[in-house]
Amino acid sequence: MLEIATVFDFTHDMVILVVGLTAVLASLGVVLCSSPIYCALYLIGHMICLALLFLLYNAEFLAVVQIIVYAGAVMILFLFIIALLGGKKEVQENSLHRSMALAFVFTLLGELYLSATVGPTQQVHGEIPPELFGTAKAIGLELFSKHLVAFELASALLLVAAVGVICLAKFSFAPLRRRVR
């Protein structure tokens, strides 16, 4: 198996790059597409790309489980619900909220740029001792030294998702009152 891995090196890297790019494009499609069915399809595509990445890094079991659980079970329920409720294409509208949200996003981006220019962050140095391997401390060391940026980005993403869900799910009382009058 090792020999094949060395022979395929260049091709392997290219394939990983292409699959990763496709995954990014698919996830952009999930956010930018206005029809629910296509959003779900982009999400499925994204998950298949992730499974392919797992496969390319020789994590066969993880790849198969990714497909079974996410692409197979979760997404089929998404599609099922869309089919039941009837996915209508949403009409794009420009409003004050939209521009406010955009302004907020750009402020955050600007802030990120500023903090990046201030100076390099201090990293935790040193190797993890073998007796700590697999413990919570080792994971913490790895997470907050090597993968700090990815970790912070993921936390920001989760926050945005939480706020977004509240925005989408909140129901307004005002029209109800008007109807009563």
Partner: peptide, 19 residues
């Protein structure tokens, strides 16, 4: 598991055809 995973993906074809 691979067979189950891929044949599970086949459901999409039918759902999409219906949709």
């Amino acid at each position: 598991l691979f067979v189950f995973a891929i044949s599970g993906m086949g459901i999409y074809g039918m759902v999409l055809a219906g949709l």
